[in-house]
């Protein structure tokens, strides 16, 4: 009985995050009046946006979120952090291709030509930032996956991870705001606020108050 209660309480700990990073974007999506599009394209866009939103949530699913880490075991937080990281980075990695889906379905611009067009539109700052974010994201993912093979001190790795994440998130948010077809005022605000508070948490931990009492890594 007590065990179940405990578990429930633990899940309850995640509720604010679920509300902020899943329910809220969904709500914003359905309350906005976006131009009509096919179901599949809407589904893919929504998936991209949720994936991005969950990547933003990563700031709060880490050591920076001391309150939570206190209540939930760090190992659990990390499990979620890793899961979201690998799965949703995967989705984001695919999103430039989602955009090309309509080009597979008609006989106009070929998907190949469209892709080349997309990744060579260097005039557009939003796109350049997308490429920057993409590269940063790849490095983040690879350095996480091969963390133990990198022979880095854990601390160094963590700092590296955090800084790279900051660059990534800033570029990605900027990218999503300038390019995103669904980046209206509400989503812009959402990205900026969540991103800014995430970075604030990070800075607070690394710069302002280096944590005196490190939580044991698992």
């Amino acid at each position: 009985m007590g065990l179940v209660m405990k578990k429930e309480r633990k899940i309850y700990q995640y509720l604010p995050l679920v509300l902020a990073f899943i329910v809220l974007p969904l709500l914003l999506w359905f309350l906005s009046d976006f131009p009509e599009r096919s179901l599949q394209m809407n589904a893919l866009s929504l998936l991209t946006i949720l994936a991005f939103s969950l990547l933003l949530a990563q700031f709060f699913l880490s050591r920076t979120n001391r309150d939570m880490v206190k209540k939930v075991k760090m190992s659990n937080v990390l499990k979620i952090h890793k899961f979201i990281g690998y799965v949703f980075i995967g989705i984001i990695m695919l999103h430039p291709f989602f955009i090309l889906v309509p080009k597979f379905l008609d006989d106009a611009v070929s998907p190949k030509d469209a892709f080349i067009r997309v990744i060579t539109s260097f005039d557009n700052i939003g796109l350049v930032l997308g490429l920057v974010a993409y590269s940063a994201m790849l490095v983040i993912m690879i350095t996480s996956f091969f963390r133990f093979k990198l022979h880095m001190k854990y601390r160094t790795w963590r700092t590296f991870h955090a800084y790279l994440t900051t660059i990534f998130i800033v570029a990605a948010i900027w990218h999503a705001i300038t390019l995103g077809r669904h980046s209206n005022g509400a989503f812009t605000l959402f990205y900026v606020i969540t991103g800014a508070s995430g970075i604030f948490f990070l800075i607070r931990m690394y710069v302002l108050k280096p944590s005196k009492k490190p939580i044991k890594n698992v």
Partner: peptide, 12 residues
Amino acid sequence: IESINGCIGCEE
């Protein structure tokens, strides 16, 4: 023509 969303500015 009603709206343009998600434009990458390729001018096509």
